[in-house]
């Protein structure tokens, strides 16, 4: 029981992101409405972003800004005192890029709605089938 509890405590963050990712995947695969698919995609992106940010965490470490001032000398900087900046850099750009690509996805959805007057996937497939024949 104790072993299970330690595993739970040390891994629970990953499980939260996995559950978020499953919610997003569910939205993308099963929902018929294109807007809901886009929302699912955003949730999936968020889970990946949270996963990366949690990788950067270190125990007993502070934010990745080196303590500085005019009067403090140049003490040796120890890597264990600062959390990992790399995932933060990657996710910082990923968040803004996610917003921009979400804009493109919404633009495509608006375009589809203008053309076919619906965002439901099954109705769209029917309209496209009718067009072929």
């Amino acid at each position: 029981m104790d072993e299970l509890l330690t595993i739970l405590i040390s891994r629970i963050n990953y499980w939260v992101y996995i559950i978020l990712m499953m919610v997003g995947m569910y939205g993308i695969i099963i929902k018929k409405n294109l807007m809901k698919k886009i929302i699912g995609m955003s949730i999936l992106q968020t889970s990946v972003i949270l996963f990366y940010v949690s990788i950067g965490a270190k125990k007993n470490a502070t934010i990745p800004i080196i303590e500085h001032g005019h009067d403090t000398g140049h003490a040796a900087v120890q890597a264990t005192h600062y959390i990992n900046p790399l995932p933060h850099v990657l996710m910082l750009t990923a968040i803004v890029v996610a917003v921009a690509t979400l804009g493109v996805a919404l633009a495509l959805a608006i375009k589809i709605y203008k053309q076919y007057n619906t965002l439901e996937e099954d109705e769209l497939i029917e309209i496209l089938k009718e067009k072929e024949f």
Binding site: R11, M21, K59, A76, V77, Y82, N84
Partner: peptide
Amino acid sequence: LIYCSMDFPPWGDPHSPASSHVSPYYIE
């Protein structure tokens, strides 16, 4: 994924693979 998460480093591990290659160079 939950099965694979057993192989991941525990939360806040300073010696996790992500924090042990290039990132110490950047910090120091």
